[in-house]
Nucleic acid binder design. Structure first.
Lengths: 151, 151
DNA sequence: CGACAATACTTGCAAATTACAACTTTTTTA
DNA sequence: TAAAAAAGTTGTAATTTGCAAGTATTGTCG
């Protein structure tokens, strides 16, 4: 069990999910990129997070991220609020429009994924969900590489 | 079981794997990008594939891909051979150096992943591997979106 | 207190990445 | 055999990205 081709499994899975994400996710007439959808997702997931926090979570250079946020603000999907206690910090949040787009994408992705899961029986489905959850948990806790204080 | 947050599971998993991939994979003094590592991986996986086949598999525009291949040829990691039967087609393959780099990255990624899997017991491990395999299979066969004739 | 370092973010600039249009070459079709 | 189609390549322009250097605010320490 030590010499599985784990990389291959992950590589294919992430690529297929990436393709799904890439082709399938615009909403309400607004076309946003894969990167932008990740940002919206993460702003929503981490409540009241700063620019730096989200940038680190996504593994993006902060200067790049700063500009990405500027774009999303122009699209009226994100807002920046100065932190009350430390005015250097900008707290990010989604606008109503941003929330809506994020939900729409969520819905679409879940629909697609459910479509795939429909080909499995209840036992397989449950096992897959449990496995992905477990993996996420262990990768989060791993000190190997690639984790930030904000998961 | 219908309203799982499947998207969230996939989003986190693929991001974490992406970070792993991003930070952890250069080899033999050659720094290659994430995109390049995917290309090497895929050229190796699909034997004797054409430029178009790999480009489609990876969901990359063919003009972009053409230039990516040019870069990899300059790095002496990939070669292009005209197809004997149809001279419009270029068959891609890895050079010895390319094979070596790909193997090194494989090794590194598998080491990291094994490190993560070490925190699981044998039953969990097996269940996760089986789940990922099943998922890959079903996504490959899915007509929903995002599959090419070459998987 | 006050200078100096550190932190959070932003902008200048240059390089890398990407994609559409238009092109060449070769093969297929009718 | 002429026209259409397919596989790649290049021109060009827009977008994305990251390092260096900047501003503004906060923390530190003599």
């Amino acid at each position: 069990m030590e010499n599985e081709n784990l990389r291959g499994l992950f590589q294919l899975l992430t690529r297929r999910f990436g393709l799904l994400n890439k082709n399938c996710c615009s909403a309400d007439g607004i076309e946003i990129s894969l990167v932008q959808s990740h940002i919206l997702y993460e702003i929503n997931r981490q409540n009241k997070a700063s620019i730096q926090q989200i940038a680190e979570t996504l593994g993006t250079d902060i200067t790049t991220f700063s500009r990405q946020i500027q774009s999303l603000i122009k699209l009226n999907l994100v807002t920046k609020t100065p932190d009350a206690e430390d005015r250097r910090i900008s707290i990010l949040s989604l606008t109503d429009e941003g929330v809506k787009i994020n939900q729409t994408i969520d819905q679409q992705m879940n629909d697609y994924l459910n479509e795939i899961f429909k080909t499995m029986n209840e036992f397989e489905k449950e096992s897959v969900v449990r496995s992905l959850t477990l993996l996420n948990d262990r990768m989060l806790k791993s000190s190997v590489c690639c984790t930030t204080p904000w998961g």
